[in-house]
Simulated scan of single mutants.
Amino acid sequence: MTEALTEIEDEELRCIGCGALIQSDDPAGIGYTPESAIKKGLETDELYCQRCFRLRHYNEIAPVSLTDDDFLRLLNQIRDADALIVYVIDIFDFNGSLIPGLHRFVGDNPILLVGNKEDILPRSLKRTKLMDWMRQQANLSGLRPIDVAMVSAKRNNQVSDLLEKINKYRENRDVYVVGVTNVGKSTLINQIIKSTTGVKELITTSRFPGTTLDKIQIPLDDGHELVDTPGIIHAEQMAHVLSAQALKLVAPQKEIKPRTFQLNDQQTIFLGGVARFDYVKGPRSGVVAYFDNNLNLHRTKLENADAFYEKHMGGLLTPPTADDKDDFPELERHEFHIDQKSDLVIEGLGWVTVPAGTTVAGWAPVGVSVLVRKAMI
């Protein structure tokens, strides 16, 4: 930095959008901000790095160079803290929301499990049933949450209820908010800040993964802190498989409306070109699909499905588009025999409710989880 900024040289300046350390030397580096923007930011108390400025005003996203070691270092800080851990997951992508080995990093700190994006669930789905399932899934991953909550950060639904639970369980401690990328963690924290201080959109948010780069510390009234940690990158999320354009077309933004299909066995439903459902064996039955309302669902015969996909992917079956279909990963098949009414879930996309006494298969990009759970509706 030049002499104009000498007086603040020793002060640690951080972007209030992503938490990155502000620097003006390396335009390609994390936290880069032109000196003129640093001066202006200090005058207005709104100091953003160039990356966050472009994200906020132009919805542009720039790649970052954080490594797995960087995230591991931050997770180790959580273990050493005395804090309540608020663990945010995407209700639509539970397995993709799991932080591998989180139970080893939280130490003795209590965990409050928060399911986000509640507003896009069908109203007919019983929330208590889903919260029970969330707790069971957390237990299977080695976690024992002290409580479970559901919110819509985007709509500010039930955030006040969550705040009551945070105040109940934190017991004069700091609060660490953790989650993988793209679960709406920073949006939730913005709602909390807005509810408690009136300040709007302090932290950078985006539908793109990885917009918070370092922990952001927000002071609480009693001298403790609410700490927003970077989203841990989970490569098996649907959000990392799809391009930004495709993600807009498959990630639900409004309440999902169910679509019912009467199927004979040996029929297939394509979910755009990103996934596929096969009704392999069973009597003629109704299945109910719960996916983004704008996602094109196309039915065909199972015997023709492979050739149909090869011919129409990127055209009739989109997303992906013709421009990015060559980079799209192969679909992997997962077969299940269904003994009770169940949901076949394609993580990050939605689910199909199927009857008992059937054999079905779900196809998803390699690495994206496909699982079966007891029907929620």
Rank of each mutant, 00 (worst) to 15 (best):
L21I: 12
R51W: 05
N190Y: 07
H234Q: 15
C18V: 09
D69T: 11
Y48C: 06
T321I: 06
P252M: 02
K185R: 08
Y87T: 00
L263G: 01
D80P: 03
A251Q: 14
I233Q: 12
A305F: 12
W351T: 01
N293S: 09
V345P: 00
A239W: 00
P63I: 09
F277M: 11
L75E: 05
Q191K: 15
K281I: 10
P230W: 02
L125Q: 07
D326N: 14
K185L: 06
M376T: 10
P355E: 00
L47W: 06
N190M: 06
L113C: 13
R135D: 04
K40F: 14
L316P: 14
I91N: 00
L213R: 05
P63K: 06
E347M: 05
K40V: 11
A275D: 12
I146Q: 11
N264L: 15
I16G: 00
G348V: 03
D26Y: 10
T67Y: 07
V64A: 12
V183G: 01
A356F: 10
Q50E: 10
S152Y: 05
E60L: 11
S152E: 05
I111A: 01
D25L: 14
F277R: 09
R51K: 15
M134Q: 00
G231F: 02
N182K: 10
T67H: 08
K281T: 14
V148C: 03
S24A: 12
S342N: 08
K254T: 15
K200Q: 13
